[in-house]
Design a protein around this nucleic acid. Sequence first.
DNA 1: ACTTTTGCTTAACACTGTTAAATGATTTAC
DNA 2: GTAAATCATTTAACAGTGTTAAGCAAAAGT
Lengths: 201, 201
Amino acid sequence: MASKERIQRLKEETRINILDAALQIVKHEGWQALSMRKIADVIEYTAPIIYEYFANKDAILIELTRKGYAILGKDMTAAKNEHSRVEDQLEAMWLAYWNFAFANKELYQVMFGVQMNCCCCDMIKSLPEAQMQTTLVSEAIKQLMKIEDINDEVICTKYYTFWSVVHGLVSINLLSRGFSDEVNRQVLKDTIGGIIRSMKD
Amino acid sequence: MASKERIQRLKEETRINILDAALQIVKHEGWQALSMRKIADVIEYTAPIIYEYFANKDAILIELTRKGYAILGKDMTAAKNEHSRVEDQLEAMWLAYWNFAFANKELYQVMFGVQMNCCCCDMIKSLPEAQMQTTLVSEAIKQLMKIEDINDEVICTKYYTFWSVVHGLVSINLLSRGFSDEVNRQVLKDTIGGIIRSMKD
DNA sequence: ACTTTTGCTTAACACTGTTAAATGATTTAC
DNA sequence: GTAAATCATTTAACAGTGTTAAGCAAAAGT
């Protein structure tokens, strides 16, 4: 009767193997290349047995998402516990978030839907249409800052700050993580206003 | 010999039809549902003729990306021209960016790679693992703020602001739009520091 | 020893992007 | 006006995708 337990353990092991295989494939070839048959190849089975462990491909992605959140939670908790002042805790937590994203790029991508569905990543920078945005904003920043402070890197930093917060807000909303319009408008106004103020003095 | 031009015009028309059809399908069924055969169905041709106009599916996405940048540039320019003070111009431009994203959700998604590859959007909120992050940060925010200011909505706003800027930074970097590590660290530190300071007074 | 269950594979379906060959109409050449 | 060549378009095919159903052989239960 103990063999039942051994079998149960083996089953859990292949379940983990499936997840590991999926992550391994994604790390090597990207999300686009992940397929049931490739996972099966890695775990040395055929594709249909995966459906004994996961309802479908989405279920695998969801499980990896959960895994990601678990690690992120752990990392942020650890970061918090390394500091006593709340300010430091807060800063450390977001730094942990940042570090998590790059240490677990693939998990972050599936957790928050960050990925191109075409190979244009590096090509976009060469699109002339894509430079209008940068130019427009950079010009305004230049005009707003004191002459003695004008410095390409600081303009870049300011532009980047604007873009990050707006893009962050937008993408969180596009993935329907539903904050109220009230909150959205508040954040948008406050943050942009804040950055503008920080440039004037 | 004028028939050559007529034919040329027709060709350009179907080129536009392809792009329109693609966008239409995506608007109705999402990026995941976009296929060459469906595009062909809409323009009332068979799939292979699309390759007379675009090298492959990616080329269509890239073209839509360019279209998106063109609209975004136009919108931001118009927003700028409606104001005379540079501060107002800057704010209006980012508001235009924000509005563009929701008025052209599908274009924004392909431009900046914002999309889930599994249907977990609304389900994620119910993941217990996903709440750790929110809880941890919200706790810290609560501790840091004056007692009389504690208010669920303002905590939500602050949390959201943190998250937006960090997530924005992360996703821009994950799509390899390559700012230097120097700039990244600067933005991260400054912005987080700024938000923390804004909570203490 | 016979039956049932289990573990796994093969085969299939309906899709996907993409390419090559075939077809049929239109234009060009003589 | 007829023959040749070009053009637009389609059909067929290939290799891949997620997913399901049927089959099969070994193990387990009786």
